[in-house]
Design a protein around this nucleic acid. Structure first.
Lengths: 129, 129
DNA sequence: TTGCAACGCGTACGCTTGTACTGCTAGAAT
DNA sequence: ATTCTAGCAGTACAAGCGTACGCGTTGCAA
Protein backbone atom coordinates (compact mmCIF):
# COMPACT_ATOMS: atom_id res chain seq x y z
CA UNK A 1 0.00 0.00 0.00
CA UNK A 2 1.43 3.29 -1.12
CA UNK A 3 1.95 5.90 1.52
CA UNK A 4 -0.34 8.76 0.62
CA UNK A 5 -0.53 12.05 2.39
CA UNK A 6 -3.71 12.32 4.35
CA UNK A 7 -6.52 14.41 2.93
CA UNK A 8 -7.54 17.65 4.51
CA UNK A 9 -11.12 18.46 5.29
CA UNK A 10 -11.64 20.51 2.19
CA UNK A 11 -10.05 17.89 0.00
CA UNK A 12 -12.34 15.28 1.46
CA UNK A 13 -15.41 17.17 0.41
CA UNK A 14 -14.24 17.37 -3.15
CA UNK A 15 -13.07 13.79 -3.13
CA UNK A 16 -16.50 12.61 -2.07
CA UNK A 17 -18.12 14.35 -5.00
CA UNK A 18 -15.47 12.96 -7.28
CA UNK A 19 -16.24 9.41 -6.23
CA UNK A 20 -19.90 10.01 -6.77
CA UNK A 21 -19.57 11.62 -10.15
CA UNK A 22 -16.35 10.50 -11.73
CA UNK A 23 -15.37 10.95 -14.40
CA UNK A 24 -16.17 14.61 -14.01
CA UNK A 25 -14.93 18.00 -15.06
CA UNK A 26 -14.00 20.71 -12.63
CA UNK A 27 -17.20 22.51 -13.44
CA UNK A 28 -19.37 19.51 -12.79
CA UNK A 29 -17.85 19.07 -9.37
CA UNK A 30 -18.13 22.72 -8.68
CA UNK A 31 -21.80 22.73 -9.55
CA UNK A 32 -22.45 19.66 -7.49
CA UNK A 33 -21.32 21.40 -4.34
CA UNK A 34 -24.18 21.99 -1.96
CA UNK A 35 -25.50 25.51 -2.44
CA UNK A 36 -24.59 26.64 1.04
CA UNK A 37 -21.05 25.43 0.57
CA UNK A 38 -20.09 28.36 -1.60
CA UNK A 39 -16.65 27.84 -3.05
CA UNK A 40 -14.86 29.44 -5.93
CA UNK A 41 -14.43 27.53 -9.14
CA UNK A 42 -10.69 28.05 -8.91
CA UNK A 43 -10.69 26.61 -5.43
CA UNK A 44 -12.25 23.42 -6.64
CA UNK A 45 -9.61 23.34 -9.33
CA UNK A 46 -6.92 23.62 -6.73
CA UNK A 47 -8.40 20.84 -4.63
CA UNK A 48 -8.60 18.53 -7.61
CA UNK A 49 -5.05 19.31 -8.56
CA UNK A 50 -3.95 18.57 -5.03
CA UNK A 51 -5.91 15.34 -4.98
CA UNK A 52 -4.04 14.32 -8.07
CA UNK A 53 -0.69 15.34 -6.63
CA UNK A 54 -1.35 13.29 -3.56
CA UNK A 55 -2.24 10.32 -5.69
CA UNK A 56 -5.94 10.21 -4.96
CA UNK A 57 -7.09 11.18 -8.41
CA UNK A 58 -6.03 11.00 -11.99
CA UNK A 59 -7.04 13.15 -14.89
CA UNK A 60 -6.91 13.49 -18.62
CA UNK A 61 -7.41 16.37 -20.94
CA UNK A 62 -10.54 15.93 -22.99
CA UNK A 63 -10.36 18.69 -25.51
CA UNK A 64 -9.76 21.70 -23.39
CA UNK A 65 -11.37 20.26 -20.33
CA UNK A 66 -9.59 18.31 -17.69
CA UNK A 67 -11.57 15.31 -16.62
CA UNK A 68 -10.88 13.85 -13.22
CA UNK A 69 -11.59 10.54 -11.68
CA UNK A 70 -10.60 8.82 -8.50
CA UNK A 71 -7.61 6.60 -8.25
CA UNK A 72 -8.11 5.39 -4.71
CA UNK A 73 -11.25 3.62 -3.62
CA UNK A 74 -13.62 5.64 -1.50
CA UNK A 75 -13.69 2.81 0.96
CA UNK A 76 -9.97 3.03 1.54
CA UNK A 77 -10.00 6.72 2.22
CA UNK A 78 -13.00 6.40 4.45
CA UNK A 79 -11.30 3.70 6.43
CA UNK A 80 -8.17 5.73 6.88
CA UNK A 81 -10.04 8.86 7.80
CA UNK A 82 -12.35 7.20 10.24
CA UNK A 83 -9.52 5.22 11.78
CA UNK A 84 -7.67 8.41 12.37
CA UNK A 85 -10.64 10.06 13.99
CA UNK A 86 -11.34 7.09 16.19
CA UNK A 87 -7.76 7.00 17.28
CA UNK A 88 -7.57 10.60 18.21
CA UNK A 89 -10.97 11.06 19.69
CA UNK A 90 -11.58 7.69 21.27
CA UNK A 91 -8.18 6.15 21.70
CA UNK A 92 -8.94 3.65 18.98
CA UNK A 93 -12.09 2.26 20.49
CA UNK A 94 -14.98 2.14 18.07
CA UNK A 95 -17.82 1.66 20.48
CA UNK A 96 -18.01 5.17 21.88
CA UNK A 97 -18.40 6.52 18.38
CA UNK A 98 -21.10 4.00 17.64
CA UNK A 99 -22.88 4.93 20.82
CA UNK A 100 -22.61 8.57 19.98
CA UNK A 101 -24.00 8.09 16.53
CA UNK A 102 -26.95 6.11 17.75
CA UNK A 103 -27.79 7.90 20.95
CA UNK A 104 -26.83 11.48 20.27
CA UNK A 105 -27.51 11.84 16.63
CA UNK A 106 -30.48 9.55 16.52
CA UNK A 107 -31.47 7.39 13.63
CA UNK A 108 -34.70 6.97 11.81
CA UNK A 109 -36.92 3.93 11.43
CA UNK A 110 -35.29 2.77 8.28
CA UNK A 111 -31.80 3.07 9.68
CA UNK A 112 -32.87 1.29 12.79
CA UNK A 113 -34.14 -1.74 11.03
CA UNK A 114 -31.23 -1.82 8.65
CA UNK A 115 -28.87 -1.80 11.57
CA UNK A 116 -30.69 -4.53 13.36
CA UNK A 117 -30.56 -6.64 10.28
CA UNK A 118 -26.88 -5.98 9.90
CA UNK A 119 -26.22 -7.00 13.46
CA UNK A 120 -28.30 -10.13 13.14
CA UNK A 121 -26.40 -11.16 10.09
CA UNK A 122 -23.10 -10.56 11.81
CA UNK A 123 -24.24 -12.60 14.77
CA UNK A 124 -25.14 -15.50 12.58
CA UNK A 125 -21.78 -15.37 10.90
CA UNK A 126 -20.13 -15.13 14.25
CA UNK A 127 -18.76 -11.81 15.41
CA UNK A 128 -15.41 -10.85 14.01
CA UNK A 129 -12.47 -11.31 16.29
CA UNK B 1 -23.66 28.57 22.24
CA UNK B 2 -20.35 30.32 22.02
CA UNK B 3 -18.60 30.12 18.70
CA UNK B 4 -15.41 28.27 19.34
CA UNK B 5 -12.70 27.65 16.79
CA UNK B 6 -12.65 24.06 15.76
CA UNK B 7 -10.03 21.79 17.25
CA UNK B 8 -7.25 20.46 15.13
CA UNK B 9 -6.32 16.81 15.13
CA UNK B 10 -3.49 17.22 17.54
CA UNK B 11 -5.53 19.33 19.88
CA UNK B 12 -8.20 16.67 19.90
CA UNK B 13 -5.80 14.07 21.15
CA UNK B 14 -4.75 16.20 24.04
CA UNK B 15 -8.31 17.25 24.75
CA UNK B 16 -9.35 13.63 25.04
CA UNK B 17 -6.74 12.97 27.66
CA UNK B 18 -7.72 16.12 29.44
CA UNK B 19 -11.32 15.00 29.73
CA UNK B 20 -10.22 11.67 31.04
CA UNK B 21 -7.80 12.98 33.57
CA UNK B 22 -8.79 16.51 34.47
CA UNK B 23 -7.72 18.23 36.54
CA UNK B 24 -4.26 17.41 35.32
CA UNK B 25 -0.85 18.95 34.95
CA UNK B 26 0.97 19.21 31.68
CA UNK B 27 3.25 16.42 32.78
CA UNK B 28 0.42 14.09 33.62
CA UNK B 29 -1.08 14.57 30.21
CA UNK B 30 2.26 14.16 28.60
CA UNK B 31 2.87 10.90 30.38
CA UNK B 32 -0.57 9.63 29.57
CA UNK B 33 0.12 9.83 25.87
CA UNK B 34 0.32 6.41 24.29
CA UNK B 35 3.94 5.31 24.08
CA UNK B 36 3.99 5.23 20.30
CA UNK B 37 2.59 8.73 20.12
CA UNK B 38 5.89 10.35 20.94
CA UNK B 39 5.42 14.05 21.53
CA UNK B 40 7.58 16.62 23.22
CA UNK B 41 6.60 17.92 26.60
CA UNK B 42 6.65 21.44 25.26
CA UNK B 43 4.32 20.44 22.47
CA UNK B 44 1.77 19.22 24.94
CA UNK B 45 2.14 22.51 26.73
CA UNK B 46 1.42 24.37 23.55
CA UNK B 47 -1.64 22.30 22.83
CA UNK B 48 -3.02 22.92 26.27
CA UNK B 49 -2.36 26.59 25.96
CA UNK B 50 -4.16 26.65 22.65
CA UNK B 51 -7.05 24.68 24.07
CA UNK B 52 -7.38 27.33 26.72
CA UNK B 53 -7.14 30.16 24.21
CA UNK B 54 -9.86 28.60 22.16
CA UNK B 55 -12.04 28.29 25.21
CA UNK B 56 -11.96 24.53 25.54
CA UNK B 57 -9.98 24.43 28.75
CA UNK B 58 -9.27 26.47 31.79
CA UNK B 59 -6.32 26.36 34.11
CA UNK B 60 -4.99 27.56 37.40
CA UNK B 61 -1.54 27.78 38.81
CA UNK B 62 -1.12 25.36 41.64
CA UNK B 63 2.22 26.29 43.09
CA UNK B 64 4.47 26.27 40.09
CA UNK B 65 2.39 23.86 38.15
CA UNK B 66 -0.38 24.81 35.82
CA UNK B 67 -3.34 22.55 36.26
CA UNK B 68 -5.73 22.23 33.39
CA UNK B 69 -9.25 21.05 33.13
CA UNK B 70 -11.86 21.05 30.44
CA UNK B 71 -14.36 23.81 30.06
CA UNK B 72 -16.42 22.27 27.30
CA UNK B 73 -18.06 18.90 27.67
CA UNK B 74 -16.48 16.08 25.79
CA UNK B 75 -19.84 15.24 24.37
CA UNK B 76 -20.19 18.63 22.76
CA UNK B 77 -16.83 18.51 21.08
CA UNK B 78 -17.42 14.97 19.94
CA UNK B 79 -20.71 15.95 18.44
CA UNK B 80 -19.22 18.87 16.58
CA UNK B 81 -16.29 16.88 15.34
CA UNK B 82 -18.29 13.90 14.22
CA UNK B 83 -20.90 16.12 12.61
CA UNK B 84 -18.19 17.80 10.64
CA UNK B 85 -16.76 14.51 9.48
CA UNK B 86 -20.13 13.12 8.52
CA UNK B 87 -20.90 16.25 6.56
CA UNK B 88 -17.72 16.23 4.62
CA UNK B 89 -17.33 12.56 4.04
CA UNK B 90 -20.92 11.42 3.76
CA UNK B 91 -22.88 14.54 2.88
CA UNK B 92 -24.43 14.53 6.32
CA UNK B 93 -25.84 11.04 6.22
CA UNK B 94 -24.99 8.99 9.27
CA UNK B 95 -25.80 5.56 8.00
CA UNK B 96 -22.82 5.03 5.75
CA UNK B 97 -20.54 5.72 8.65
CA UNK B 98 -22.43 3.30 10.80
CA UNK B 99 -22.24 0.67 8.12
CA UNK B 100 -18.56 1.27 7.74
CA UNK B 101 -17.94 0.93 11.44
CA UNK B 102 -19.85 -2.27 11.73
CA UNK B 103 -18.93 -3.97 8.49
CA UNK B 104 -15.44 -2.80 7.77
CA UNK B 105 -14.02 -2.38 11.21
CA UNK B 106 -15.88 -5.24 12.77
CA UNK B 107 -17.03 -5.40 16.36
CA UNK B 108 -16.57 -7.95 19.04
CA UNK B 109 -19.12 -10.03 20.91
CA UNK B 110 -19.55 -7.54 23.66
CA UNK B 111 -20.00 -4.62 21.33
CA UNK B 112 -22.45 -6.60 19.31
CA UNK B 113 -24.73 -7.35 22.19
CA UNK B 114 -24.46 -3.86 23.56
CA UNK B 115 -25.47 -2.46 20.23
CA UNK B 116 -28.40 -4.79 19.91
CA UNK B 117 -29.58 -3.78 23.31
CA UNK B 118 -29.24 -0.14 22.45
CA UNK B 119 -31.25 -0.56 19.32
CA UNK B 120 -33.92 -2.52 21.12
CA UNK B 121 -34.26 0.19 23.68
CA UNK B 122 -34.52 2.83 21.01
CA UNK B 123 -37.15 0.85 19.23
CA UNK B 124 -39.22 0.58 22.34
CA UNK B 125 -38.95 4.30 22.92
CA UNK B 126 -39.80 4.92 19.31
CA UNK B 127 -37.10 5.92 16.89
CA UNK B 128 -36.13 9.53 16.95
CA UNK B 129 -37.63 11.80 14.31
C1' DT C 1 24.09 28.15 49.44
C1' DT C 2 24.88 26.64 45.23
C1' DG C 3 23.46 24.32 41.46
C1' DC C 4 20.49 21.48 38.87
C1' DA C 5 16.15 19.66 37.29
C1' DA C 6 11.46 20.78 36.17
C1' DC C 7 8.25 23.95 34.71
C1' DG C 8 5.81 27.91 32.52
C1' DC C 9 5.87 31.22 29.00
C1' DG C 10 7.06 33.41 24.93
C1' DT C 11 8.60 32.75 20.54
C1' DA C 12 9.83 30.54 16.22
C1' DC C 13 9.40 28.42 11.90
C1' DG C 14 8.42 25.59 8.05
C1' DC C 15 4.44 23.09 6.29
C1' DT C 16 -0.32 22.63 5.12
C1' DT C 17 -4.70 24.47 4.16
C1' DG C 18 -8.30 27.50 2.52
C1' DT C 19 -9.19 30.55 -0.72
C1' DA C 20 -8.46 32.97 -4.79
C1' DC C 21 -6.23 36.04 -8.55
C1' DT C 22 -3.77 36.18 -13.06
C1' DG C 23 -2.15 35.32 -17.42
C1' DC C 24 -2.59 32.52 -21.29
C1' DT C 25 -5.19 30.03 -24.79
C1' DA C 26 -8.74 28.01 -27.78
C1' DG C 27 -13.16 27.93 -29.26
C1' DA C 28 -17.64 30.75 -29.94
C1' DA C 29 -19.97 34.81 -31.26
C1' DT C 30 -20.23 38.89 -33.90
C1' DA D 1 -10.81 39.29 -38.12
C1' DT D 2 -11.77 40.77 -33.54
C1' DT D 3 -13.58 40.25 -29.27
C1' DC D 4 -15.68 37.52 -25.66
C1' DT D 5 -15.78 33.41 -22.79
C1' DA D 6 -14.55 29.45 -20.20
C1' DG D 7 -11.11 26.69 -18.88
C1' DC D 8 -6.33 25.42 -17.30
C1' DA D 9 -1.82 26.10 -15.05
C1' DG D 10 0.77 28.68 -12.17
C1' DT D 11 1.23 31.48 -8.34
C1' DA D 12 0.04 33.85 -4.02
C1' DC D 13 -0.64 34.45 0.56
C1' DA D 14 -2.53 34.69 5.16
C1' DA D 15 -4.11 31.70 8.79
C1' DG D 16 -3.69 27.50 11.09
C1' DC D 17 -1.01 23.64 12.61
C1' DG D 18 2.69 20.56 14.29
C1' DT D 19 6.58 20.72 16.60
C1' DA D 20 9.90 22.50 19.50
C1' DC D 21 13.79 25.68 21.41
C1' DG D 22 15.39 28.80 24.99
C1' DC D 23 15.02 31.93 28.81
C1' DG D 24 13.79 32.93 33.34
C1' DT D 25 12.41 30.96 37.70
C1' DT D 26 11.90 28.00 41.66
C1' DG D 27 11.93 24.09 44.76
C1' DC D 28 14.90 20.47 46.16
C1' DA D 29 19.37 17.94 46.61
C1' DA D 30 24.08 18.09 47.79
Amino acid sequence: MVERAMLSKGELEVARLLWEMAPASVRQIHEALPAERQMDFATVQTYLRRLETKGYAKSTLEGRMRIYSGRTKARTVIRETVDDLVNRLFAGDTMPLMRHLIEDRGIDEKGLSELKELLDRLEREGAKE
